[in-house]
Amino acid sequence: APTEIKIAVVMPEGSTWTNTLHDFADAVAKETKGEVAVKIYAGGVSGDEVDVLRKMRVNRLHAGGFSGVGLGMVLPEIRVLEAPLLFDSYEEVDYVKERMFDDFAARFEEKGYVLLGFAEAGFVYLFSQRPLSSVADLKQTKMWVWKGDRVAENFLEAFGVQGYPLQLADVNTGLDTRMIDSFYSPPLAAVAFQWYARVRYLLDFPMVNSTGALLMTKSAFYRLKPENREIVSRLVKQYSAELVRLTRRDNDEAMQVIQEAGIERIAPTSEQIASFQRSAQKNYEMSVPSLYSQELLDRIRGLIAEYRAGKK
């Protein structure tokens, strides 16, 4: 019988995530000549990210696709990649992740996990039912925050925004009943969950690059034969790069949908941008050293500066 790799993801069947995973599963079966079989549990049938981690600990699942929330439970310092206003472009994100991959992989290895590959959900924007054209406006909003996402809580706190914790499934009702009037999300998720149909404004300023990754337990990974391990690692790298490319395409398309729906894109004022930068600075100070070390933050900011200098 083939060695099984059971992978769970929260994204539903038919999404870019699961389509790419299915392609990956086919490629693995082909290249290992059927010795390794990848089984996909999509759409949250295995529970949320914490449940997936629990099942991985007891060897019921072997791998999972995680957002920053799930990754942060294993390795809090990974969330340095989600520090607000850190990245300006996809190129910077790629530059940093490429150079930091081995470093983070070693940190995950210590916790018993193999970092197979990075993914991302995209740049996060603020959406609202009320205009967000000044700093004062922003402080008035009732902003949704994903229940249990401490990093987002801190980030909103630093921005002086009130976060209202709700489960993912309650956001639509929350917007309908005015329990919340704003949310933060990449365009892709805003369209997929139909949240965008319930707001009127979008602040055209990318706040955070929402990260993600595919993790596997060490025990499951080292159970594979060395040659199959090599094949799986290589294919994961290839398909996660493809996934990142497709996600960016999906985000562009989602932004198109949002614009066609008549949602007003508000450009931030220079006063707002200055205020955001001050808040971001405050957020970094709040997160060191509880979340990540000053050294790690400096290293990543150094890499970004290096990239920006090289581009000139």
């Binding site: 229940k147 249990g148 009130q162 976060g163």
Partner: peptide
């Protein structure tokens, strides 16, 4: 806390 003082109470309700 949410309706009167406009303070969300994360940990308590969780």
């Amino acid at each position: 806390s949410r309706n009167l003082f406009h303070l969300p109470s994360h940990r308590i309700f969780e």
